[in-house]
Nucleic acid binder design. Structure first.
Lengths: 266, 266
DNA sequence: CGACACCTTGAAGAGGTTCAAGAAATGTGG
DNA sequence: CCACATTTCTTGAACCTCTTCAAGGTGTCG
C-alpha cells in the first residue's frame, strides 16, 4: 500500500508523457553508447558489478536503433538475433494467428527487455510495435550468452529477466481467466502507474500510449467495454479521463476493485 | 496436419494413462540415478553432448523425489532452490491470490521442467500439485547455473526452456483473450494429445488427469461450461467422452473449430 | 455399502458483445 | 491556418454467450 501523493514535479495532464525525460539525462552528445554510462542501467542490467565487469557489459550493446511510432522492431517469423533494451518510448507486443486473431501480450517501457520469445526457435513468434517514437539498445544474443558464461551476475540477471516475464504472464493469465471487466481495467491501470512511478513519474497521472482497442486486446475485452468501464470509473469518481489522459483520484478504490473480488450483488 | 492413425499399440480406454511406461524402461534396479542413463533425457536435457559433458550433466540431478497424488511439489511463498524435471506423473501449476482467486497456469507431464517461476524472487510464486503419483528429478539451481557456465549446450538449453515457457504462455493468453468456450476446449484437447503423442501415446485417445473444474480454471471457464462443451462435441460426433476418458473421433473438426474463428451465425 | 467427490443437465440471469450512430481528436494537404 | 478525411472514442439498444443456482446422476474409495 503506497499513499497517493501528488506528482513529484506537480505536472499537469500534458506533461505526463511516459517518455518525457523526468529521469535526468545528460547532454546526449556527451554520452558514450555504453551501459556503464546509461542512467537506465539499473533497470535492464545487473547491479553491483565491479569496474572490470562493467567494461565487459559495455560490449553487449552493439548499436542503438531508432523505431518510429507505428513501426515494428521485430515481427513474427523473423530471424532472432538480439534482445532489445528499451531506452525511450513505449512498445506493445502481440501474437497473431493465420485466421486473423490478435492478442496484445504486453506493453513495455523504458528499461524493459523485449525479444525473449525468439530464443526457443531462433525466430520471433510475436510482433513488437512502437507506440511512440522509441530508441532501443540492440544486444546480440550470442554476445549475451558468451559474456554471461564469464560474468556470473549477468548470467543470473538473464535468468531473472526471463523468470520475471514468466511470472508476469502468470498474472495476466489470472486476470484473463478470472477477472471481470472492471477488475481487469483496474488492475491494468494500477500496474501501469506502478511501473511509471518506478521510473519517476506520477503515482496518479498517466498518459496512455495505446488505443482502447489495444487495451481491450490485452485485457480480453472489446474496445466498447473498455470505454464503458472507463466511463463507469469516472461516474464513480475513481478516475478522471480525457481521451488518453488518465488521473487516478482514488487508488484505494481501484485496489479494492481488484482485490475484493466482489460477487455481483454482494 | 498429421493424420489420425490408431494408437500405435492399439490400446483401449483403460490403458491410455499418461504415466504408463510406453517409452521402454529398463529394470529400475539397473538404472543409475543419472541423466546419462535416462530415457527422458532428450526431453529435458540438451542433445548432442560429448561423453565428458554427459558426465558433467549427471551432477545436476541431486536426488529424485516422489510426489503422491494431491501432494504439492512446491507452493507459493516457499524458498526457491531447485528446478524439477518430471520423470513420471502429471502436475498442475496454479497461482492463487489472497482474495481466493485461483488460476491453473499449466499442466505438465514427463520430460517437462517446472519451477522457473521461482528464479526471479528466490521464492516460488505458484503451487505445483501432482495430479497423479509422480517422480521428479531435483536439480539445484545453483548447480545448473554453475554448470551452464561451462557447458554451452546446457546454457543454451536453459535459455530455450525459459523462452519456450514464455511462448507457451503467449498462446494461453491468446486463448483466454480471444477464444470462445468451444475454441478453448478444442485447443486444449489438441494441445494435450499432441504432447502425449510426442511421448509415444495415442493421437486420438487420452485420459484426463484433471477435473472439469481444473480444466475450467485453466481455460477461464466454469466447470459447467466445460462439461456442456464436452457434451456438445459428443453430440457433434467429434469426440467420445466417458468421464475422464476422451477419444478424439475427428481431429480435423477440432482444428477447424480452433482455426476457423467462426463468427456466431456464420 | 454408504459417503464423498465429480460430472451432467436445466432454467434463469448477468456481463459482455455486436451493431449502429454520432462526437471528439488527430493528421493532412492546400 | 483552416477544411476535410481519418482515426479514435463514447453511448445506446438488442442480443448472445457464459455463469449461476439447483437438482440429480455417476463413479470411487474406504
Amino acid at each position: 500500500m503506497f499513499d497517493v501523493t501528488p506528482s513529484p514535479m506537480g505536472m499537469g495532464w500534458r506533461a505526463e508523457a511516459t517518455s518525457d525525460a523526468k529521469i535526468p539525462l545528460m547532454n546526449p552528445h556527451a554520452i558514450k553508447v555504453a551501459c556503464s554510462n546509461c542512467n537506465l542501467r539499473e533497470l535492464c542490467m545487473p547491479v553491483g558489478l565491479n569496474a572490470g565487469e562493467l567494461n565487459r557489459i559495455d560490449e553487449i550493446v552493439a548499436t542503438r536503433h531508432q523505431v518510429k511510432r507505428g513501426a515494428t522492431l521485430f515481427s513474427n517469423g523473423e530471424k532472432f538475433t538480439s534482445l532489445y533494451a528499451i531506452r525511450t518510448g513505449f512498445f506493445k507486443t502481440c501474437v497473431t494467428t493465420e485466421d486473423g486473431r490478435d492478442q496484445v501480450t504486453g506493453f513495455q517501457m523504458a528499461g524493459e527487455v523485449i525479444g525473449l520469445d525468439g530464443i526457443v526457435s531462433d525466430h520471433h513468434t510475436c510482433d513488437a510495435v512502437a507506440l511512440e517514437d522509441a530508441e532501443v539498445c540492440v544486444m546480440p544474443f550470442d554476445r549475451i550468452e558468451e559474456l554471461s558464461r564469464e560474468v556470473t551476475a549477468l548470467q543470473r540477471h538473464m535468468h531473472k529477466i526471463m523468470s520475471r516475464e514468466i511470472v508476469r504472464e502468470h498474472g495476466v493469465m489470472l486476470l484473463l481467466g478470472s477477472m471481470r471487466a472492471e477488475e481487469r481495467l483496474a488492475a491494468f491501470l494500477l500496474n501501469l502507474v506502478q511501473r511509471l512511478h518506478a521510473r519517476g513519474f506520477s503515482q496518479s497521472e498517466l498518459l496512455l500510449r495505446m488505443t482502447r482497442e489495444e487495451i481491450g486486446s490485452y485485457l480480453g475485452l472489446k474496445l466498447e467495454t473498455v470505454s464503458r468501464t472507463f466511463s463507469k470509473f469516472v461516474e464513480d469518481g475513481i478516475v478522471e479521463v480525457k481521451q488518453r489522459h488518465v488521473r487516478i483520484l482514488n487508488t484505494d478504490a481501484l485496489k479494492l476493485i481488484v482485490n475484493n473480488n466482489q460477487q455481483p450483488g454482494q
